[in-house]
Design a protein around this nucleic acid. Structure first.
Lengths: 177, 177
DNA sequence: ACCTTCTTTCAGAACTTCCTGAAACTACAC
DNA sequence: GTGTAGTTTCAGGAAGTTCTGAAAGAAGGT
């Protein structure tokens, strides 16, 4: 019941493997754990939800590794855990819509990295705002420029990711150039 | 000639130190080497170009470390080296315009990370395009969605960073939401 | 209560990335 | 050529990150 020989299964499997491997490498460059990127790559190109054990076997990784990274992906909202009725095992499936993936990542990165950055800047501005002298003025101005920029980024991300549709960007693109 | 006592130099210096430290930490989260982020933070908040030795002393880092990261910043285009006539030392100064910084970073990351990703996807699409079966079809479709998304991103980055002015974004922002 | 299946945790190992300090190199001046 | 000021390189070590495997913890079934 599990093995009607599917056409070109081997080649498809190999291609997916390549994608998973390479995607992991690319993830690293963006500050994302390699295994996490691999699990994600696997789940978005696979037709059905997978269990921890299947993922372990497929990627040849340990239980602890698979477990931790799956939790992380779930906490980002990129992966959901699904339970099939009558089964105790937990299955995992990824959000496959590329646009939604993008919005999730932007929202999360904004929350996790832009906000802290803004606080740092606010604090620096606070402690130097009373200082006199041209050097202090220049420092303050630079900090302000950075703050304004981050506020703007925040805004863009919020707006883009609220409008849950991909048509917006090609549309807005027309106004640029 | 070097030490007219500047107002609040100490507090300003401390605030800059805080900024440098924290910015380094934030850089890490974005896949950027901590020291590189710190040197950059230092150079964008300092009034005059600095030498390698001054940077080493300020950040308490080794010559090799300072040297390598300065080269890297120069190769990104975020820092320029300037030579003062009659002096043999090399001075470094950062691009301070936040908008230009942003464009540089986007262009570089696109070149260094988006392009490789696109090649990976192109190759995966190539090897599976002839396969039959619904699973292969789904795989192909997903790869295509990713490619389209990266192409779009490329476009956005190219257009935004070509129009060398920050007014564009707030303007385009009006059309969203 | 006990067994089975699945999940979670975590100490230490493996790996990767980054940094240091010293030596080699370059270029100019005398 | 010798000296001096500055730059570049790199082997080895330190620090940081990720992974493993085993053990402990749920949760349900009989």
């Amino acid at each position: 019941m599990k093995n009607e020989p599917p056409p070109d299964r081997t080649e498809l499997h190999a291609a997916r493997d390549e994608f998973v491997t390479q995607w992991g490498a690319i993830g690293s460059a963006w500050g994302i754990n390699r295994t996490m990127a691999q699990i994600h790559a696997l789940l978005i190109t696979v037709p059905n939800p997978m269990t921890t054990d299947e993922i372990m076997a497929d990627l040849k990784i340990s239980r602890g590794n698979a477990h931790g990274n799956l939790r992380e992906l779930v906490s980002w909202g990129l992966v959901r855990s699904v339970v099939r009725k009558g089964e105790r095992k937990e299955y995992f499936e990824a959000e496959k819509d590329v646009w939604k993936m993008f919005c999730i990542v932007m929202r999360e990165r904004s929350r996790r990295e832009l906000q802290p950055a803004k606080e740092v800047l606010a604090h620096c501005a606070e402690r130097t705002k009373g200082l006199r002298g041209t050097e202090a003025a220049a420092f303050n101005q630079q900090i302000k420029a950075l703050r304004d920029f981050l506020d703007l980024s925040d805004n863009v991300i919020a707006k883009i990711s609220r409008s849950e549709q991909s048509k917006i960007i090609p549309f807005a693109l027309k106004f640029l150039k």
